[in-house]
Design a protein around this nucleic acid. Structure first.
Lengths: 117, 117
DNA sequence: AAATTACTTAAGCAAATGCTTGACTATCGC
DNA sequence: GCGATAGTCAAGCATTTGCTTAAGTAATTT
C-alpha cells in the first residue's frame, strides 16, 4: 500500500484542472464531440484537444473517431480508482477518530503529554 | 455547478503527487512530526516541508508547532470535498448507464445512428 | 554555555503544464 | 471538385512544480 500508483497520479492530476473537471461533468450527461466539449470555453480548440488527451491518458474518458468527428465519453474505471483511494482513507481516519473518541470518553482528564502516537 | 472550485483544484492537485499521497496515508494512521513524515523518503527534509505546505494549503492536513517540533494530522474536510465531487459524478453516470441499459432492452434492434445525445 | 536537534527560508534550476498561433489533413455537403 | 467543417500536429513561450543546496533560527540536551 506504499507503492507508486501511476494511474492514481494521472487521474488526480487530470482532475486538478477546473476545465478538465468541467469536461468530465459535461460527459457525465452523455457523450459529446470535441467541439461540443469545447463550446463552453474561451480557449482555443487546440487547448481543448490537449485537455482531452490528458483525460484520455488518465483513463478517465474514452474517445473514438468516426468520419471527421471524435466522440468522447466517460470511462468509469479510473474514477472508481480515485473513489477507492478516498474511501480507504476515510475508513482509516474515521476508525482512528472513533478510537480517539473512545479514549477521551474513558479518560476525561487527559494529561497534556502522550495524547497519541 | 459549472463554477470554479479552487479548493477542489488544490485538493486534487495535492493528491496527484505520490509522495504527498503517501504522507496522507501515513497521517491516516495518526499524527506525525515533519521528520517522521520525511523518514520514508530519500528527498531532502526541505522538499518534504514543501510538500507539507502544499497539503496544508489544500486544507488536507493541519499542522501546529510546539517547541521545535511541528505535528501534522489529517483534516477530513477537504478529503470530503473530493469524495463529494466523485460521488456526484458516479451518481450521474450510473443513472445514465441505467437509462441506456433500459433503452437497449426496450429496443434490441438498435439502428446504428442516433444511439444517444 | 556549547552542541545537537528540528525545522525554516531563500535562491536557483531543470522539467512539466497550459496555453497560443499557424500550417495541415481528412471528411462532408453541395 | 470545392469550400466549409472537424480535428490534428508542431513550435514556441510564460508559469508552475518539484526538487536541490546553503545558510539561517529557535528549542533541547548535555
Amino acid at each position: 500500500m506504499l507503492q507508486h500508483q501511476p494511474s492514481l497520479d494521472l487521474a488526480f492530476q487530470a482532475l486538478a484542472d477546473p476545465a478538465r473537471r468541467a469536461m468530465v461533468e459535461r460527459l457525465c450527461d452523455g457523450p459529446a464531440s470535441v467541439s461540443e466539449l469545447a463550446a463552453p470555453f474561451e480557449m482555443s480548440l487546440s487547448a481543448v484537444v490537449q485537455h482531452i488527451a490528458v483525460l484520455e491518458g488518465a483513463g478517465l474518458i474514452r474517445t473514438a473517431k468516426q468520419g471527421r468527428v471524435r466522440t468522447c465519453q466517460v470511462e468509469p474505471q479510473a474514477l472508481r480508482g480515485v473513489e477507492g483511494w478516498i474511501n480507504e482513507r476515510r475508513l482509516l481516519w474515521e476508525r482512528r477518530l472513533d478510537r480517539l473518541g473512545d479514549y477521551l470518553k474513558a479518560n476525561p482528564d487527559m494529561p497534556k503529554k502522550d495524547h497519541d502516537q
